Simulated assay, not measured.
Amino acid sequence: MVKMINLNGKSYAVLPEVETVQQLLEHLELGDRILIVEKNKEILQKERYDAPIMDRDQIEIIHFVGGG
């Protein structure tokens, strides 16, 4: 079943095979970046990226971009 979440302020449909925050990051091709992930207004440490994604979760992902 497709879950609907709020991802960075926008409605986003999560495929059934994407069950955890880590799987979401990999699906978005962000798995190898330095990130800050917030789930339902709580910042997740990397060791907690196995947290399940539930319908209507609010996920914020901030990644850093280098430059000069």
Rank of each mutant, 00 (worst) to 15 (best):
S11R: 04
R48D: 15
L28D: 01
D32C: 08
A51N: 14
D32L: 09
E47N: 15
V21Y: 02
Y12H: 03
P52G: 01
I62K: 09
P52I: 10
E47Q: 14
L35I: 15
L25E: 06
M54I: 04
R33N: 08
I36H: 06
G9T: 10
G68N: 03
Q58R: 13
I61P: 02
K39R: 12
G9E: 07
V21K: 00
E38S: 10
E47M: 13
D32Y: 08
I43E: 06
I53G: 02
I59Y: 01
G31E: 06
L15K: 13
E19S: 15
H63M: 12
S11L: 02
Q58I: 12
Q22W: 05
L28C: 04
K10W: 03
V65N: 13
H63G: 12
T20N: 11
V18W: 04
S11I: 04
Q58P: 07
K39C: 08
L44T: 12
V37E: 09
L30R: 07
I36P: 07
H27C: 00
D57F: 03
D55Y: 06
P16K: 15
I53S: 01
L25N: 03
E47F: 13
L15E: 08
E42L: 13
L28A: 00
Y12T: 02
I59N: 00
E26T: 05
G9F: 06
L15N: 06
E38C: 09
H27M: 05
R48V: 08
S11E: 03
I61R: 01
V18R: 00
E26D: 08
E17V: 00
V18S: 01
P16Y: 10
I53Y: 02
G67C: 07
D55Q: 09
V21L: 00
Q23W: 12
E17H: 02
E60K: 08
E19D: 14
H27D: 05
E17T: 00
V37W: 11
A13N: 01
F64T: 14
I36R: 07
A51Q: 14
E60Q: 12
M54F: 01
L24Y: 02
E26P: 01
L28Y: 03
I59E: 03
G66C: 11
R48C: 10
I59C: 03
Y12G: 00
E29T: 09
N40F: 09
M54V: 05
L28W: 01
Q22M: 13
K46F: 11
N40A: 11
I61Q: 04
E38F: 04
G67R: 07
I61A: 00
M54H: 03
L25C: 04
I53H: 04
D50C: 14
E17F: 00
G68I: 08
V37N: 11
R48N: 14
V21Q: 02
V14S: 04
I36N: 12
I62H: 11
D50K: 13
E60S: 07
L15F: 02
I53M: 00
E47W: 09
V37Y: 10
